[in-house]
């Protein structure tokens, strides 16, 4: 049973992709960089090149972290759906298989000024 109800009950999701005017939600976060309290929520057209996502909003948002200056996007490790994953920087979000509400994570081994070891 997917809900306790007195009769058949179908929920309508509030955050379906068609509600975002041709754009989609992408979540992105920098592992072990908790100066940023939660993953970023970005709203972008699916045809946005991955490179633009990185060079645009993502680069701007991470500037407050002292590691931002040493961040080399060509060497970071990526995860999508919590699994290792390699993006094509020149392809669009859609062509990279980044769907609505997908979570991207990136790791920078050895670069963690504000984070204590666990």
């Amino acid at each position: 049973m997917t809900v306790a109800a007195i009769r058949e009950y179908i929920g309508v999701p509030r955050d379906s992709v068609e509600n975002f005017g041709g754009k989609q939600i992408v979540y992105a976060s920098w592992d072990r960089h908790l100066l940023f309290a939660a993953p970023f929520l970005l709203c972008l057209p699916p045809e946005t090149p991955f490179r633009d996502l990185v060079a645009g909003p993502l680069t701007a948002l991470v500037q407050a972290d002292p590691d931002a200056v040493a961040l080399d996007w060509t060497t970071v490790e990526w995860l999508k759906d919590n699994q290792p994953w390699a993006p094509d920087f020149d392809a669009s979000l859609a062509a990279n298989g980044i769907g609505h509400k997908d979570q991207l994570r990136f790791r920078t081994a050895g670069l963690n000024s504000l984070s204590a070891a666990a």
Partner: peptide, 25 residues
């Protein structure tokens, strides 16, 4: 200004870490 990913259930920003690793969301 990145705004935040929210939890679908409690609706808080997902600020909390792994129970056994306080350095990892």
């Amino acid at each position: 200004y990145g705004l935040a990913k929210l939890c679908q259930t409690c609706q808080l920003p997902t600020v909390f870490t792994e129970p056994d690793d306080p350095t990892l969301t």
